[in-house]
Design a protein around this nucleic acid. Sequence first.
DNA 1: ATAAATCCTATAGAATAGGTATGAATTAAA
DNA 2: TTTAATTCATACCTATTCTATAGGATTTAT
Lengths: 137, 137
Amino acid sequence: MLSKRAKYAIKTILFLQDHPELVPASAKLISERETIPYKFLENILRDLKTHQLVKSVRGAEGGYALAKDPSMISIAQVMRAMDGPIALIPCISERFYESCPECTDEETCRIRKLFAEVRSEMVPILERPITTLAKSK
Amino acid sequence: MLSKRAKYAIKTILFLQDHPELVPASAKLISERETIPYKFLENILRDLKTHQLVKSVRGAEGGYALAKDPSMISIAQVMRAMDGPIALIPCISERFYESCPECTDEETCRIRKLFAEVRSEMVPILERPITTLAKSK
DNA sequence: ATAAATCCTATAGAATAGGTATGAATTAAA
DNA sequence: TTTAATTCATACCTATTCTATAGGATTTAT
Ligand code: FES
Ligand code: FES
């Protein structure tokens, strides 16, 4: 399951997508509108920033905005920044690969085969740009 | 990511599938062959039993075997027994449904829509009977 | 100057993960 | 009938992660 952290992050990114990009959105505003605990959100925003997903403007009237064009941002990116790998087992993760200590042979591992298939179905969906997430009013 | 518990459970189920069903496999045997910590495995086996995935024979020469025909067992069942929902968010889980406290409207939730799609791709793969996991020698 | 922000570090409580300890109950075989 | 192998049950333990909060330093528009 997705962590709350990741879920909050996704909501934040979606909020920023909808927000007019001329004025940055303050953490306070996001916190109120999306009902995310303020201090927790600050934390998440810092993390999103280090992962280059949002950029910030300091000082009064400051806030956050998407760091790049929404067409270049995906939910997968947010998930990886918050929770790490999308794959359900480490041995098939592209970016967070680790070998399975208890499996002797990756090539013939039945578990691995199955979860590789799962991953290859999940990833394309999660990697779609957030612009494809239509806001049905 | 899958918990170790779930991974061990899957390996156990696969081991039992390969094991001749006339003689039950003892926890000790499974533990050694699959390098799963013995006491932890006992724990997992008990859980698998309450979820009706394995059955047991007590006493000396006792052990465990699959509780039903392998064609009726899927990895999804094992995962649910160990880790709970397969869905990445609770509001789209079939068996472990919970509403999302911070989402006001499920119908229009963009996150929900996306993850529903993800889930609907994952589940059929994970629900295939374990007999389809060919053992490539 | 002041207020509104971000930024940074540290901490705390709760839950979960991963595993261990101890021992009782059951049963086949010696 | 004793012994050894095994499941069954409960409780406990330790480390980590998750979720969140606290306190303050820094930046900047007004
Ligand atoms: S090699 Fe990763 S699950 Fe077997
Ligand atoms: S309703 Fe579950 S994520 Fe929005």
